[in-house]
Write a protein that binds this DNA or RNA. Sequence first.
DNA 1: TTAAAAAACTTGTATATACAAGTTTGATTT
DNA 2: AAATCAAACTTGTATATACAAGTTTTTTAA
Lengths: 234, 234
Amino acid sequence: MTQIGYVKVQKELKKKIIKGEYIKGDLLPSENKLSKQYGLSRMTIRHALKDLENEGLISRQQGKGSIVEGKRKSYELLSKKGFTEVMKGKEIKIDTELVKKPRIENWRENFYWNLTTEEVSAKCIVFSRTRTIDKKPIMFEKTYIPNIGMKTFCSKPFVHNSLFDTLLINHDIEITGVIQKFRAVTASEKVAKRLSISKGSPILEIVRKLATNRPDFFIYSFLYCNTDDFTIEA
Amino acid sequence: MTQIGYVKVQKELKKKIIKGEYIKGDLLPSENKLSKQYGLSRMTIRHALKDLENEGLISRQQGKGSIVEGKRKSYELLSKKGFTEVMKGKEIKIDTELVKKPRIENWRENFYWNLTTEEVSAKCIVFSRTRTIDKKPIMFEKTYIPNIGMKTFCSKPFVHNSLFDTLLINHDIEITGVIQKFRAVTASEKVAKRLSISKGSPILEIVRKLATNRPDFFIYSFLYCNTDDFTIEA
DNA sequence: TTAAAAAACTTGTATATACAAGTTTGATTT
DNA sequence: AAATCAAACTTGTATATACAAGTTTTTTAA
């Protein structure tokens, strides 16, 4: 299926960036080269590049060219710099551990978000993870995914230990947007245990609803963060 | 100061939307009308409109026209729906009160963000506000703006009681990006008093650095939110 | 009066061209 | 060898044009 016009250019360039054929810092072929290559006028090529720029995949510099910025920024929440360390510019390694493997369950009652009848009847895939820094638990996360067209999700291991990479590579699902709500709460007994802190400590609660490239397919998650030593960036 | 090209069209239309001359649902003048009005070609007008579309200020529909979507949602933090009310779909009115009028001060020592020598020597404009819902204080915010080219800021009243609208309309400063860090902390005595809660209650602290269309010009703010009844969206 | 068709709009895509302005590269001069 | 200058790139802005495709309004026909 050949596509027409600027959309073809856009998709091809996008794929090359996502796949890693172009990496951050690379220059795309110039507008004139792309023009000849695709048999389209320079203005049409510019139309295509404009959108890539808006998505943040490339930036552009007059006189230089179109610079690849890398893959779409994901919705990673944990700042890679600690609240105290942020001044010193230290980088910190974050580990992710699956504490409850994905399995299919019924949605819990009084779920925070409104669910469609289709979502409810399909049940949901549930799993939970903790994120640690220097073996110290910083974040506890519980994720709910509607069990619609997710056949292999529970049986196959995660890709790169990452939910987003797993969704993209195994299920062609891309995250396209997010609604997230923040609250400061006191730690419940369960959360306090998971985060190795005392019950009643101030905890950052984040409720998220992630939109995807599948219409009407959302992913829900609830996060509980100990922000004593690290902040959450959003 | 007359501006040239598509930027002029962009800025004028943007201001009209922000000021409320166009409201949500209105149609902008057609591309051909704008073309004649500004003495620019239709393609140049399209260039201007494209950016407004990317910013979410307008949407466009083939055959119909350019539809005004309303002001930039961008960096408003307070969700207009309460945490409990969110299910019922109630809309809530948020009032903003200036508790400390803008005045020029020295930067406080050990400021959270690194400052340039230029910023330090220019001093800063400081003011603080509270946001209330049903006369109940929900958020306390302290803002720091480098006193560089901000002549009338302290003397003129706010536009629409909004910092962003004031910056855009009175100073041609637009917010282009934000870094924000979230922490759950316990309320200090001062903050507890401002928010009419007891000291030690869990409080959501947000530290923000806002980038603008002026190079190397940033706005800093510190927010303290009572999230018992309302969430913060970001 | 109603319904269908036509006309008059709207935005979407695409081309070919021109010059401005910033960056890199290579030749020339010192 | 180093500095300077010019040429050859790059993207940025702008025009004028053409037709496609979707929406609204007007006209026409039943």
